[in-house]
Simulated scan of single mutants.
Amino acid sequence: MKKSILITGCSSGIGYAAAHFLHNNGYEVFATARKADDVKTLREEGFNAFQLDVTDTASIDSALAAVLEQTGGTLYALFNNAGYGQPGALEDVPAEALREQFETNVIGLHEMTRRIIPVMRQQGYGRIIQHSSVLGLISLRFRGAYNASKYAIEGLCDTLRLELDDTDIHVVTLNTGPIHSRFRDNATEKFLHYVDIDKSCFAKEYHEEVLARKAKKSENDPFTKEPIEVIRKVVLALEKPQPKPRYYITAATHLLGTFKRLLPTSWLDKILLKV
């Protein structure tokens, strides 16, 4: 019998690549995306796909009902992958932007998780894979909203592991570093929407760092890897009898995660100011 997995955020990037890989390797994949056009594309590619906006309770209700109807009320795994980044210095990021960042990255993840836990408790097993980031371990300038959302995910995951310790439901955190995807393009759209660049005291840095980074797209950046690096860890989270509680992905995460554990805060700050 195929193992079933529901993946959020499959319109592109890691979610899209993971859905294809798992589908091609024997999993019953339920691929979801926020936009109807993306769902249509996924269906044309042979996926069992549903529209799911993690910030909309009615959308979650509808998608989960459809998935569970097809599986007979069971689900082996949930991969909470949906999310985006909101760049900008914290003093330039309005409360509305921070609220929107948390609605998707944190509240949506939490709602999906708490809705699926009773299903997994009933069946007696399950895997919940939560997509965090290296920026859930360390902080960078102009990433404050995203940092805060990923730090929040870390707290949710650490607590869930304790609360589910007496079950066969495994919570796995992925601390992913830079990956080739549309993440930076999407983040730049949010940045331009919410941040008034020319009125900021960081205008020069925004043009030289945030916008220039989008133009570069990291083709030659040795630290930026392909989605397969994430997928390999997803497979371990799904198939190991006792998966690790967290997986570091990319050299950047290993390096910065080690610095976080070993270095005094003042030393780490000096390093991060150069990143």
Rank of each mutant, 00 (worst) to 15 (best):
R213F: 12
P118V: 07
K274M: 08
A49K: 00
A203K: 15
L90R: 08
D165W: 13
E239H: 12
K274R: 15
T253G: 03
E208G: 07
Q86V: 14
G15V: 11
A148D: 04
L78K: 02
K217Q: 09
L52K: 01
D185A: 09
I249W: 02
V67E: 00
K216D: 15
T250E: 11
F30S: 00
A63D: 03
E208P: 01
E28T: 14
L6E: 03
P178D: 07
A251R: 06
L272K: 12
K3H: 03
P227H: 08
N48W: 04
R115H: 07
L137E: 06
R184Q: 08
F50A: 01
H131N: 15
R213E: 15
R143F: 13
E163S: 07
K2F: 05
A89E: 11
S181C: 05
L211Q: 08
T41A: 14
A203S: 12
M120I: 13
E69R: 00
Y146H: 11
L256K: 01
R141G: 11
A215P: 02
G73V: 03
V93G: 01
Y151Q: 12
G144D: 14
D185E: 12
V171I: 15
H193L: 09
M112R: 02
L6R: 00
R261V: 03
A36S: 12
E154F: 03
D56S: 09
P222T: 02
G26A: 09
I129K: 00
D269S: 13
G126V: 08
L164E: 13
M1V: 12
R115F: 07
K216H: 10
H254N: 08
N25R: 04
R161W: 14
R182E: 13
A66K: 06
V230E: 02
G9P: 10
T176A: 15
N80Y: 06
A145T: 09
Y194V: 11
Y247W: 07
D92V: 06
Y248R: 09
G72C: 06
K3N: 10
Q122G: 03
A31L: 06
Q123S: 07
I128L: 13
T71D: 05
L255D: 05
A65G: 04
A19M: 11
S200M: 11
D56G: 02
Q101N: 05
D168L: 11
K204S: 14
S132M: 04
E219V: 02
T250C: 11
K3D: 06
R114M: 12
K217E: 12
F191P: 01
V230F: 05
G13D: 09
Q242F: 13
K270W: 14
C10D: 07
A77R: 01
E239R: 10
L135G: 00
